[in-house]
Simulated scan of single mutants.
Amino acid sequence: MPTTLTRIIVNRNHRQARSDLANRPGLHKTLMRLLAHPAGPTPRKTGGLLFRLEPGLDPVLLVQTADTPNLTGLPGGYGTTDTLDLTPLLTALTPHLPVRYRITAAPTAYRPTGAPPDPATGRRPRGKITPLQGQEAHAWWHRKATHAGLHLTTPPDTVSRAFPSPDRPAPFYKLTQFDGTATITNPDQLATALREGIGKGKAYGAGLLTLAPA
């Protein structure tokens, strides 16, 4: 099954589209309709659904799926679509290849809560998920990029992205866009990161990594 990337130029005049742009969980529900064969207890993960909203006068949604998307699942008039098979990109990954990248991610870390150890196991609770910003977010991305098979060759440009949602998910993710250049160190690890996404908040528009020639 080909991994695909669908570009949706969103129609701001469409009622459902306007609602989705202001409600990230609602947007997730709409995009789940693109999965041709949703299955299992984690259909988003099984279907490889990742997405990123590129803001602007004409907002663009980049939606990745593990199979050819069911475009008839979108409401009529939602937007114009174009789908690309990512197989050539995934098979062309080679060590030392320079690339440009973009990812909107949810940098987080577990912080100790001060709770006592569990009497039965003696282990302390894992802690509370805390959003990272500034230098901590940069360090988070450096670690994730290295694990994903990328060597960052320039400091990333970062932009904080709004997280529109009337009902904050738990935990509430703060999104940061990272842009920069890198070279490929491990094509297999990078292919996995491209297919599966990076970090938390994937159901809310985080984790989709895209590449372009440098």
Rank of each mutant, 00 (worst) to 15 (best):
D20H: 08
L190V: 09
G149I: 07
S160T: 12
I8H: 10
P169K: 11
A39R: 11
K200Q: 12
A66K: 09
V159R: 12
P171N: 05
E54H: 03
R33V: 04
T94W: 00
A120E: 08
H96G: 03
G47K: 07
T42P: 00
R195G: 07
L62H: 07
T158R: 00
L53K: 03
G73A: 06
T113L: 02
H147Q: 14
L152G: 11
L34I: 01
R126F: 05
D82Q: 14
G56K: 04
D67M: 03
G48I: 04
G48Q: 06
R7V: 09
Q16K: 10
T4W: 10
P156Y: 05
T158G: 02
P164W: 10
S19M: 07
D157N: 14
G205V: 00
D179A: 13
T91N: 13
M1L: 10
D20E: 07
A214H: 13
P171Q: 11
R143W: 00
T42K: 10
H37K: 08
Y173W: 05
A203V: 06
H28M: 11
W141Y: 12
I184V: 13
W141S: 00
F172I: 07
R111T: 10
D85V: 02
Q135S: 15
A137M: 15
T72M: 10
G180R: 13
A115D: 08
G77R: 06
G197Q: 04
R15C: 06
Q133G: 14
S160Q: 15
T46D: 07
K45R: 08
T108N: 03
A36I: 03
I184D: 04
F51R: 00
R33I: 02
A182V: 07
D188W: 05
P107N: 11
A212W: 11
Q16S: 12
P98W: 09
T68M: 09
T153R: 01
K29D: 00
G77T: 05
R24L: 10
T153A: 02
D179L: 14
R168F: 00
T6V: 08
T30G: 02
A139Q: 14
T3P: 00
Q16L: 11
P187M: 07
Q64T: 03
Q135T: 13
A120P: 02
I184W: 08
P59Y: 01
L27I: 04
P156L: 01
G149A: 14
K202N: 10
G48R: 09
Q177T: 08
P43C: 05
D20M: 05
K200F: 06
P164M: 07
E196C: 03
H138M: 15
P2L: 03
R44I: 00
P55R: 08
A36K: 08
Y78G: 03
I9N: 15
L71Q: 09
D82K: 11
P125K: 12
P112A: 15
K144Q: 15
T183I: 13
D85R: 01
V60K: 00
L71C: 14
P59V: 05
